[in-house]
Design a binder for these strands. Structure first.
Length: 481
RNA sequence: GCGGCGUUGAUCCAGCCUGGUCAGGAUGUCGGCUUCCCAAGCCGGUCGCGCGGGUUCGAAUCCCGCACGCCGCACCA
């Protein structure tokens, strides 16, 4: 299968659709979730809460999406979350100034010079437009944050480019009021915004997208805390560079120093096992250690959790050791105290983050679960993340079967995401349910009326089991776990 | 943002070169009949020429612009 096939099904069934489709001029990079997509996303987030947030006793918060300028002065996004670009006045091609100079001069060119410095270098080296050979000048900064104006004075503010800044700025409050002891994980799920120059790859690279971020705050004294020992026996798939991963025990990764500390090993195993448990094939997952050039400006050690898809290895999670960069900067710019007491000394906590791309994760799950067998298409989603948990169908639409099926539906809908379908042949209804990834379908047949039993069909195997109606409410929670 | 190619119901595709008799097929979906455990059949309904302008008596079709998409370049905390 490929991206088009998966998105075709996702569009037909109501997972995702292009935002404001009815207006042809809608810019690229914006997507809506349809009914199935919302339920799928909700289930995914609920699993994230269950397996990461609750399992690790993290603190989940929800912060504002618009934040004032100074937050991003402190975070570094205003200065660094931008690229030096230069436009050809003749053919209007746009180039990265630093990359262009580097390519022509073969000399390393930093991306944080003054704009004039790039113009100078371009002039000195007589660099012309690679496209039409016209002269180039006027390097500008393209910042990838969306600027917004607050109130009548249009006070400078930005839509957050990552959810974690809200966690950092709220940390002093949380630490004081929530009886927090480090190391501690802080979690937030919500939208982030990045004004991509040219978004491609549809839902995989959006201008407005969901993140689920975990920021682990700790002090360097915690890096090899014994509480992280439980991770040592768990496997992780480590890749150095763009290679096939090696599946190894976390303890061996520490020994070989491909992972620098127990804390990082613990959270890497946690995030990988999360993706394995919600349905990605372990052999399609790798934790790729990033090179210095690839790392974000705030990161000192970084891994990307990637999944193998038809569009190549797809980054789902950025795992960054941000050191004390964030809290120090917020302390400097805000003037507030972001330190904590450790053995009588004030120290600024460090940060290790797991920054998940939610929309991408959902796509990866769909593609991983997209199956075509014997001419039938189905989504082999784990029951725990399936948008619809159970279908209830009358075998025929006469002889009182719809009434009996409706009665069962009415009782199940109180506890489960259930679907009633009495339209078309029974086979057609199974096929529809298969494409929506419904893991179990209950069929009411003539025997139901006399024996009070129904058949329960398993989506993946198509096999059926006869079950007493009275047992459904006890049995389904076990099946759906 | 540049270059090339493209855009026809929810989905897939024909029509465009050669303007009219052209908006058609299939899937889906809804209603009815029928059948009854894996997309059967029949009847009926439903949904479309990306947007704007131009040429023309007449434009899905030709021309221009824009938007979006794909590929390449570039970009991608």
């Amino acid at each position: 299968m490929n991206y088009e096939e998966v998105m075709n099904l996702a569009t037909r069934r109501g997972f995702f659709l292009r935002s404001a489709e009815s207006y042809s001029s809608t810019p690229a990079g914006f997507w809506d979730y349809g009914p199935l997509g919302v339920q799928f996303k909700n289930r995914f987030i609920e699993m994230w809460r269950k397996m990461l947030v609750r399992r690790d006793a993290m603190v989940e918060i929800d912060t504002a999406q618009i934040m004032p300028k100074n937050v991003f002065v402190a975070s570094g996004h205003l200065a660094s979350f931008s690229d030096p670009v230069i436009e050809c006045g003749s053919c209007h091609s746009i180039f990265r100034a630093d990359k262009l100079i580097e390519e022509r001069t073969k000399k390393n060119t930093p991306e944080k010079l003054d704009d004039q410095a790039y113009d100078m270098l371009i002039q000195q080296n007589r660099i012309a437009c690679p496209n039409c050979n016209s002269p180039l000048k006027g390097t500008k900064r393209f910042n990838m944050m969306f600027r917004v104006g607050i109130g009548p004075q249009n006070e400078e503010a930005y839509l957050r480019p990552e959810t974690c800044q809200g966690i950092f700025v709220d940390f002093p409050y949380l630490f004081k009021t929530q009886r927090i002891k480090l190391p501690k994980g802080f979690a937030q799920y919500g939208k982030s915004f990045r004004n991509e120059i040219a978004p491609r790859q549809g839902i995989l690279r959006q201008r407005e997208f969901y993140q689920a971020e975990i920021e682990v705050l700790f002090t360097p004294a915690n890096l090899d805390d014994p509480r992280f020992d439980e991770a040592l026996g768990r496997p992780i798939n480590i890749a150095e560079g763009d290679t096939e991963p090696r599946r190894m025990l976390a303890s061996d990764a520490l020994k070989e120093q491909v992972v620098p500390s127990k804390l990082i090993a613990y959270y890497l195993t946690l995030i990988q096992s999360f993706y394995e448990e919600i349905g990605l094939d372990p052999s399609n997952i790798r934790l790729r250690r990033l090179t210095d050039e690839e790392k974000a400006f705030y990161s000192s050690v970084a891994y990307d959790l990637e999944v193998r898809t038809s569009v190549g290895w797809l980054e789902l999670v950025a795992c960054n050791y941000r050191s004390d960069y964030d809290l120090k900067r917020h302390s400097e710019v805000s003037g507030s105290d972001f330190t904590i007491d450790e053995g009588g000394k004030r120290v600024t906590p460090h940060v290790f983050e797991l920054s998940m791309g939610v929309d991408r994760s959902l796509y990866a799950l769909l593609e991983n679960c997209y199956k075509v067998e014997e001419g039938r298409t189905y989504l082999s989603l784990r029951a725990a993340v399936a948008p619809i948990q159970v279908g209830i169908f009358p075998l025929v639409t006469k002889d009182g079967l719809p009434e009996a099926a409706t009665e069962i539906y009415r009782s199940l809908i109180k506890e489960f995401d259930a679907l009633y379908d009495g339209s078309g042949s029974i086979g057609r209804r199974y096929a529809r349910a298969d494409e929506a990834g419904v893991p179990f379908c209950i069929t009411v047949d003539h025997d139901t009326l006399s024996t009070k039993t129904v058949t329960v069909r398993n989506r993946d195997s198509k096999s059926q089991e006869r079950v007493a109606v009275s047992e459904l409410e006890l049995m389904l929670p076990k099946l759906l776990r």
